[in-house]
Simulated scan of single mutants.
Amino acid sequence: MTLAEILLGLVTAQRAGELVFSRLNTKRLKQRGAFEVSAQHYPLMVALHAAWLISLWLFGHDRPLNIFALVAYLGLQILRVWVMRTLGQRWTTRIIVLPGAPLVSAGPYRYLSHPNYAVVAGEIVVLPLVLGLPFLALVFTMLNAAMLFIRIRAENRALDAARTARARS
Rank of each mutant, 00 (worst) to 15 (best):
A4H: 06
E5L: 12
E5R: 15
Q14W: 12
V20R: 15
F21K: 14
T26D: 10
R28D: 07
L29E: 02
G33C: 12
F35I: 08
E36W: 09
E36H: 13
V37Q: 10
Q40G: 07
L48G: 05
L48S: 08
A50R: 13
A50M: 05
A50E: 09
L53M: 08
S55M: 03
F59Q: 02
F59K: 01
H61E: 07
D62G: 10
L65Q: 07
I67M: 15
L70N: 09
A72R: 06
Y73N: 07
L76M: 12
V81M: 12
V83W: 03
R85Q: 08
T86I: 07
Q89P: 01
R90W: 01
W91D: 04
T93C: 15
A101S: 15
P102F: 01
L103D: 10
L103K: 14
G107V: 04
G107H: 05
G107S: 10
Y111A: 08
L112R: 14
E123F: 03
I124A: 00
L127I: 05
P128T: 02
P134M: 02
P134C: 04
L138T: 04
L138D: 00
V139T: 03
M147D: 00
M147P: 01
I150G: 00
I150R: 11
A165E: 04
A165I: 07
S169L: 14
